[in-house]
Amino acid sequence: MSFREPESLIQSVAQAGAVRSTIYPLKPNRRGWAGIAAFWLVLPVTVLVISLAASVHGALDPFFIMLGIATLGVLYPVLALVRTRIRICEHGLIVDSVPGRSRRFLIPYLTIDSGSVMVHPTPSRGGAYRYKPLTAATKRYPWPGLDRFVLAACPLRPKISLGPPYGQPLNIWGAPYSRHGISFRALHPVFASPWWRARPAVRDHPPRAQWVLGTLRMLLDRPELRPVLVFNDQPVMRWMFGTDRPEDLLREIETAMVASGVAEAAGFAAHAMANPYDRPPRDIPDDPQLW
């Protein structure tokens, strides 16, 4: 079976249409702010102890230098969490965090499978989901070949690792303090990002988009995998977002999808909230519902 690069692409923010609403799903809640405050209280003490151990005389100089480096190193990921936003537009979602194009994804509504929407009451179990890189490297699934496909940044293999190549799970957006999570199948993140689409898979190899399509062609020969990999003739992957207010996020997305002409999206928010997905971690890797 032949498979072309998707036609349902949003190439720029302007093509997504007017912004209907903006949601910051990973904005720290009380537990998050408490953890951040505790860390900033412990950090100076830890750095001072290290500085004193490294230099008996003039310990304040290395203290301020190390504290500055540590502050910059921690501040960046904290700001990324605070800035992460989902812009719900006329024609699709824009998901981004830190400035720059590498972490911006444009998901057309036509590629969102409304029947795949789930609410996860325990997002801390995300480590058990089979599209996490560590799981993909250490687990054998009943569906061979998916290990190479489900991770958006493939194929990469860190020098210190053995086993199948894997990369970053670009489709995971969570925070350790999030109380809930939502997920749904939608356009594969490599195609949802113009930046990732043009990136080479590995040195002297085809770009990411060609690599994903090449893997897809082999897997489409398996009828049981077609619902996992394709929706509306587009390559898809399950996205997951941590949030404290899943009902608000789902309701906003549902309203925008219906307004854009996706009639089958009506009612998916209420259905997902009424049927949360809460399975033990040991069951998650082999569960076909999470394809």
Rank of each mutant, 00 (worst) to 15 (best):
E264Y: 02
V13C: 05
S2L: 14
T135V: 13
V230Y: 10
F3W: 09
P123F: 02
G214Q: 06
V212A: 11
P189E: 04
K132I: 02
E7M: 11
I284Q: 09
D283W: 01
A175H: 09
L26E: 01
Y177Q: 03
G127F: 11
A152W: 06
I182V: 15
N232F: 11
G68N: 09
S193K: 05
V95S: 06
F231M: 11
S97N: 13
A18I: 11
P227A: 10
Y166F: 15
V56Y: 14
M257P: 04
I172M: 08
E247A: 15
L81N: 04
V13I: 08
L93Y: 07
P121D: 02
S8I: 04
I107L: 13
Y129E: 09
Y166A: 01
D96G: 10
F231P: 01
Y109S: 06
A80T: 11
L43G: 02
S12I: 00
S12Y: 02
F268K: 08
N29W: 02
P158S: 13
V47R: 02
R157D: 06
W143Q: 10
F63C: 11
L52Y: 07
A192F: 04
V74G: 02
R31I: 09
V13M: 09
T111N: 12
E5P: 01
P246N: 14
W143N: 00
P123E: 07
Q234F: 11
H57K: 12
M257C: 08
I65N: 14
A209C: 12
T111R: 03
V212E: 01
L216F: 07
W143E: 09
L249V: 06
D244L: 13
F191N: 07
F268M: 09
A270T: 13
A53M: 15
I172T: 06
P276Y: 07
I172S: 08
V98T: 14
A18H: 12
S55N: 05
V117P: 05
